[in-house]
Amino acid sequence: MTWVRRNAKQIVLLVVLTMLAILWLLPILWAISTSLKPNPHTYRHPPRWIPEVATLENFREVFFTIRTTPIWRAYYNSLVVSISTTFLVLVVSSLAAYALARLDFPGRNLIFAIIVSSLLIPGQITLIPVFLRLHRWGWLNTYKALIVPALAGPFAVFLLRQFMLSIPRDLEDAARIDGCSKFRTFYTIVLPLIKPALTTLAIFTFFGSWNDFMWPLITMTRRNMMTLPVALQAYLAAFNYMIEAGYILAASVAATVPPAVFFLVFRRYIIKGIALSGLKL
């Protein structure tokens, strides 16, 4: 009894948190359960958490469906776009950040001030002019439409520049005295030193691109070009929700499980990255 009393607070906390955690996980588990059931079983009452008959038929259907974007294709589109965007954002932004943090040239403060003040402008402002421009250039329904405009985001440059300013200059000075060129200093000394910021930026850019919904909804109207979120949204229209729920849920689960596994594997980095994005710039 004394043990219970001494640990009462911990026990209450554990019970409440466990109930909440279950509330957070059950919807995902229910979706997985539904996705494994043959369609006529999906809406049977009482609900069965463990399917009576488990089948991968739903997954086979959505991976190769001809009614709308096959999931494999949406995956491929999403991966191509997210990986290229992340890689190119890191390259383009770190180069610019290096110039703004470490090189001396006329107009540097003005350029930085302009880039920073553009952070005031919400994305909805540029949405229409950029759409019209890509429309004119014939870029709609191409990967470029999703990748290239995303490289212009000012936050990446800002984040990396601030991080570069916070690292000591001694190493770079030493490298210069040893005759290291500016580009080699950037590549072999500065980049490794700002690795935490690069990791954070990579995670945010990747998930930002992977989960982006509005921009691909506008620019990717052709079935075979849709990214996962847009394709999934189209599943609601392409399949009958009442009798084909298994297909729709299988598509969602297929889109959910790999990122979830990715998160579990790299959880330490992701959590650290998010914490870093708080106030510790």
Partner: peptide, 10 residues
């Protein structure tokens, strides 16, 4: 980490 369309469908 789940995209908005998948969570909405669920």
């Amino acid at each position: 980490v789940i995209n908005v369309a998948a969570i909405s469908i669920i």
